[in-house]
Write a protein that binds this DNA or RNA. Structure first.
Lengths: 150, 150
DNA sequence: TCTTGACCTTACCATCATGGGAAGGACTAT
DNA sequence: ATAGTCCTTCCCATGATGGTAAGGTCAAGA
């Protein structure tokens, strides 16, 4: 199976497969004499594993750990569960942060009459510049880059 | 006020102030004869406005619109409210996506006995590689870069 | 057998918000 | 005057991803 087929089969782009190989997340694929990467069903399964973990929001760092456990026949399910619970925790925290942003915005929007007059509590609030600390700012920067589109 | 003081007063790093100036989000600051940027209270207020909008998760693109409305004496509050509601919508969607990831993970973790045996439904599920479509993957990539730390 | 088109390879560039650092100039307090 | 802190610009890096360009390979059909 060449990289294009492996990409289709795993749901990842060929670009990303090469990227993961470059970063060492996956081992370097075997090559044909002409230099084409070749993939076995086992390797495609690993790629699917990675994509699925990404779908569940695991950071690449943690995926490395998950992969190690996946390959380890003598692993303990407790180790995997711990990683999953950590991930759940992280998601929970981020959800709460976003919820808090949303609540604030909703509150401001409720207070804004939304007509043709220039008075607007939303702008007034923004002008005040109340801090919400670095955690939320760290999150929002990522949301922005996502929403900004490419 | 020089850039360091403006940074402290606005809660932004000097780096970011220069960056925003470079990208045109804010107008180029006046300079002293020796080249130091100088900021008035008005400009600091604008910087605070930007940071606050970022705290609320607005993408930089939208902040540009908000800034224009902020400066526009004859704006209509409806315009501002529309932007806020759009932002609320976007946040809501992302929260739901993350919630769905979390639910799936929680489900898997619940099914995992978490002991010293190697059997683990979490790994089994990951191996199956069920797709959740591109929307969630787009979101998770951002979460990962955030969680990965720098 | 030759051609064509689809695929592969590497390498480089861009994104976006942000930080780090270097090299050199400016200001401030002792 | 000297030290130390600030400023300036410029370059580099991040992380996941896409794009593109130049060139090699392969499979199918004429």
């Amino acid at each position: 199976m060449n990289i294009g087929e492996a990409a289709t089969a795993s749901g990842m782009s060929a670009k990303m497969i090469r990227y993961y190989e470059g970063t060492g997340l996956i081992p370097a694929a075997d090559r044909t004499t002409s230099g084409y990467r070749i993939y076995s069903e086992t390797e495609v399964q690993m790629l699917r594993f990675i994509r699925r973990a990404r779908d569940l929001g695991f950071p690449v760092e943690k995926i490395e750990d998950l992969l190690a456990l996946w390959r380890d026949r003598s692993r303990q399910s407790a180790d995997v569960k711990r990683l999953a619970l950590e991930q759940i925790d992280g998601l929970q925290r981020r959800i709460q942060e976003m919820q808090s942003m949303m609540d604030t915005l909703q509150h401001l929007a409720d207070a804004c009459c939304g007509d043709n007059r220039p008075d607007c509590p939303i702008l007034t609030d923004l002008g005040k510049g109340i801090s919400q600390g670095p955690l939320i700012r760290e999150l929002t920067s990522k949301l922005q880059s996502r929403a900004g589109g490419r």
